[in-house]
Design a protein around this nucleic acid. Sequence first.
DNA 1: GTCGGTCTATACGCTCGGCGTATGCACGAC
DNA 2: GTCGTGCATACGCCGAGCGTATAGACCGAC
Lengths: 285, 285
Amino acid sequence: MHDIELRQLRCLVAIVDEGTFTDAAIALGVSQAAVSRTLAALERALGVRLLRRTSREVTPTAAGVRVVAQARRVLADVSDLVREATSGHTRLRVGYAWSALGRHTVAFQRRWSAAHHDTDLHLVRVNSPSAGLAEGACDLAVVRRPLDDRRFETAIVGLERRLCALAADDPLARRRSLRLADLADRVLLVDRRTGTASPDLWPADARPATEDIHDVDDWLTLIAAGRGVGVTAESTAYQYPRPGIGYRPVRDAEPVAVRLAWWRDDPHPAFQAVLELLTELYRTG
Amino acid sequence: MHDIELRQLRCLVAIVDEGTFTDAAIALGVSQAAVSRTLAALERALGVRLLRRTSREVTPTAAGVRVVAQARRVLADVSDLVREATSGHTRLRVGYAWSALGRHTVAFQRRWSAAHHDTDLHLVRVNSPSAGLAEGACDLAVVRRPLDDRRFETAIVGLERRLCALAADDPLARRRSLRLADLADRVLLVDRRTGTASPDLWPADARPATEDIHDVDDWLTLIAAGRGVGVTAESTAYQYPRPGIGYRPVRDAEPVAVRLAWWRDDPHPAFQAVLELLTELYRTG
DNA sequence: GTCGGTCTATACGCTCGGCGTATGCACGAC
DNA sequence: GTCGTGCATACGCCGAGCGTATAGACCGAC
C-alpha cells in the first residue's frame, strides 16, 4: 500500500479546475495517459471514487468534493512552506511570551515600518521559554531571562521595573507602592517556564507560597479573583490592563532585564537593526 | 527544478523526531543512504540548508525549524485528507446558510445523538447557495429554496412563517404583525445567493427597493442601523436575536419551505434518518 | 443507423529517479 | 593511534512513471 503523494493531489485539483483530464494534462505538462493513471492510483490509495467520468464532463463525487477541498489546503500549506524556507526575509516575526515591549510597542512598530517598509513586522505571543523561537513561530524573541538553550543568544536591550499585580479589592491595592515583604504571606502565581517572577526574589526564610500557572490569561483571572498575587514586568501592566486588577511598583525588587533573543548560528538578517532600535527606545524613553 | 514531494517532508520530520539520519532510516524502513539523499534533494529544491549535521547530533537551522513546523502542518492535513476520504461516515456535518432549524435545533441535536451516538453531528454555517454542500464543507444541508444544481436533490421537511426584521426604533416595530404592503416604501436587504426574501413576494407594481448583502452579520448590522428591513424565515429570529432588532410576522407572506438537501448520486448514509427525524420534528411541533 | 469527434482507460516499451550495498570521510572517545 | 559512530557519495539495479498508440464509451450530426 503506497502513501499518497503531492503529485497525485496536484493532478486531482488540476482535473477539477480544468474540467477534463485532457486539459489537466496540458496544464500539468504531461500526457493525458499519465493524468488518468495518476488519478486512478490516488483513488486506489484512498479506496474511494473521487471523480465521475463521462465522455462529456468530469464532476467530483461527494467524497471527491471533500478531498479536493482538503487537497487545496494541503497544496496551499506546501506553498507556504516553500515561501517560509526561501523568502523568510520579507517578513519579521518577533515573539514574546507574556508581554512584549510595553509602552515602547507602538513606537517600535511605527519606527520599524518607517525605516524598513520592505520587511513587515509581526508581533506574536507564544507561551514557551523561547517565546516561539524554538518552535519556529518567530524569527526574533523578546524575553526576560537568559535562555539556557545554546542555540540561542540574547542581549539586554533595557531594564524594566517590577510591578506587583493585585486584585483591585485587595487591601494592599490602596498603597501606592509595596515591598517584597508585604507579599510574603500571599500566594505567588508564577509561570516557571516563561515568567519573570520567582521565589528567590525573596530572602530564603521569607518566601511566599507559590502556585504554577501556564498562561497570562489564567494568571489574570486568578489574580482578579483574589486567589493569589503576581510579580511581573512593568510592560505587563501596559499590555494587560484589567478592571479587577491593580498594578503597583515593588520598591525593593531588582529591575528585570528585557532581552532580545536570536538564533546564534543564523540570526535573522534584520536582527542587528532590531537590536539597535530597541536599545535606543529603552535608552531614550 | 523538481517540485517538492511528501516523501521528502516525511523524511525531514523523521530525522528531526528520531535525532539522527540512521534512526530515521530505520523508522521509515529505508536505508540511511536514501535518507541522506532525500533530504539533500529537499534542501536543494528549497535552496536552504535545513539541518546542521555533526557526527554527534543533527539540529535544525532556523529555517529548518520553520520548515519542520510547516511540514508537520502539511502532513497533518494529508492525514486529515485520508480520513476525510475513507471514514467520512463517522461524522455528519449539516450545513446551513443563514439560520439552521430555529427552535428545532436543540431537539434535533439531542434526538440525533440519542439515536445515533456512533456518528456525531456538527452544524456548520456556510454562506453559499448550497450551504456548503458544493464546497465539501458539509454532507447534508438545510436550505430554504430549491437548488438548481442538478448534483443535489432536496425535499421539504417543513414550513416556516416569514418574519420581517426591523430596527427596534422603527415605527412599524410597535405593531404586532405586518403586511407586505407596509414594507413597500422601505429598502429591502436581500441575499440573492442564499436568502429567503425576494422582491417577487410583492406584486410587480409595489415592490420595495432592494439592496444586496452577502452575510447575515451585515444584514443584522444594517437593519439595526435603520438602513433597511429584512424578510426572513422564523428561525432567523430564533438564531439571531439582537437588542436593536425586532422581528414581526408578515401576515400575507406565504410560508417558506425548509428543505433538506443532499448529493443526488451519493447521499450520506445517514441522510434517510435525518430526513425522517426533521420531518417529524416539523410535523409535531 | 452510421460516422466522426471527443474523452478516458489500457497496453507496451523505455527511461530515469530512487533504492540498497559498499565505501569514504569527519569527528569524538579512549 | 585506533575504534566507533554517523553522514555523504559512488555504483549498479529495478521499477515507478512517462509517452505513444490504441481501444472503448459516449454523443451529436447527418
